[in-house]
Simulated scan of single mutants.
Amino acid sequence: MNITKLFKPFLASALLTVGLAGCGAADNSSEGEKSAEEPKKAENQVVNVYTARHYEADEEVYKKFTEETGIKVNVVKGEAEELIERLKREGESTQADLFITVDGGVLANAKNNDILQPVKSDIIDKNVPANLRDADDNWIGMSTRARVIVYSKDRVKPEDLSTYEALTDEKWKGKVLARSSTSLYNQSLLASFIELNGEEKAEQWAQGIVNNFARQPDGGDRDQAKAIAAGVGDVAIMNTYYVGLLVNSEDPEEKKVGESIGVFFPNQETNGTHVNISGIGLTKHSKNPENATKLIEYMTGVEAQEYLSAHNFEFPVNQEAKKPELLQSWGDFKMQELNFDTLGEHNHKAIEIFNKTGWK
Score class of each variant (00 low, 15 high):
3 I>M: 10
3 I>C: 10
3 I>H: 07
5 K>F: 13
5 K>Y: 12
6 L>F: 15
7 F>A: 15
10 F>L: 13
14 A>Q: 11
17 T>G: 08
17 T>R: 11
20 L>V: 00
24 G>L: 05
28 N>Q: 09
29 S>H: 11
32 G>D: 11
36 A>Q: 09
36 A>M: 09
41 K>G: 03
49 V>Y: 00
50 Y>K: 03
51 T>F: 03
52 A>Q: 04
52 A>V: 06
56 E>R: 15
58 D>S: 10
59 E>D: 14
59 E>M: 13
62 Y>E: 08
62 Y>F: 15
62 Y>N: 10
65 F>E: 01
65 F>I: 08
67 E>Q: 14
68 E>Y: 07
68 E>H: 08
69 T>N: 06
74 N>A: 04
76 V>S: 05
80 A>L: 11
84 I>R: 06
85 E>M: 09
88 K>N: 11
90 E>P: 01
95 Q>F: 03
96 A>P: 05
105 G>K: 11
106 V>S: 12
108 A>N: 15
114 D>C: 12
115 I>Q: 05
116 L>A: 14
118 P>T: 14
120 K>F: 12
120 K>R: 11
123 I>V: 15
123 I>R: 12
125 D>R: 15
127 N>H: 15
130 A>D: 11
133 R>V: 09
136 D>Q: 15
137 D>P: 09
140 I>Y: 04
148 V>W: 01
149 I>E: 02
156 V>P: 00
156 V>K: 02
157 K>P: 07
157 K>Q: 11
162 S>W: 03
163 T>Y: 03
167 L>M: 07
168 T>M: 06
171 K>L: 07
172 W>T: 10
179 R>P: 01
181 S>T: 07
182 T>R: 09
183 S>T: 09
187 Q>W: 07
190 L>V: 13
194 I>E: 03
196 L>A: 12
197 N>W: 10
203 E>T: 03
209 I>N: 02
209 I>C: 05
209 I>A: 08
212 N>E: 08
213 F>I: 12
214 A>T: 11
215 R>W: 11
216 Q>G: 14
216 Q>W: 14
219 G>W: 13
219 G>P: 04
220 G>H: 13
226 K>A: 12
229 A>F: 10
230 A>G: 12
230 A>L: 12
232 V>H: 09
233 G>T: 10
235 V>T: 12
239 N>Q: 08
239 N>P: 08
239 N>S: 13
240 T>D: 06
246 L>K: 02
252 P>K: 08
253 E>L: 13
254 E>G: 05
255 K>V: 11
255 K>Q: 15
258 G>P: 01
263 V>C: 02
266 P>R: 02
268 Q>T: 06
274 H>N: 05
280 I>T: 03
281 G>W: 00
281 G>A: 05
287 K>W: 00
288 N>A: 02
288 N>S: 00
290 E>I: 01
290 E>F: 02
292 A>M: 00
293 T>K: 01
296 I>H: 01
296 I>M: 04
303 E>A: 09
307 Y>M: 06
307 Y>G: 04
310 A>W: 04
311 H>D: 07
316 P>M: 04
324 P>L: 03
327 L>F: 03
329 S>D: 02
336 Q>G: 05
337 E>L: 14
337 E>S: 15
337 E>W: 13
343 L>M: 12
346 H>T: 08
346 H>P: 00
352 E>R: 06
354 F>D: 04
355 N>T: 10
356 K>L: 07
358 G>E: 06
359 W>A: 03
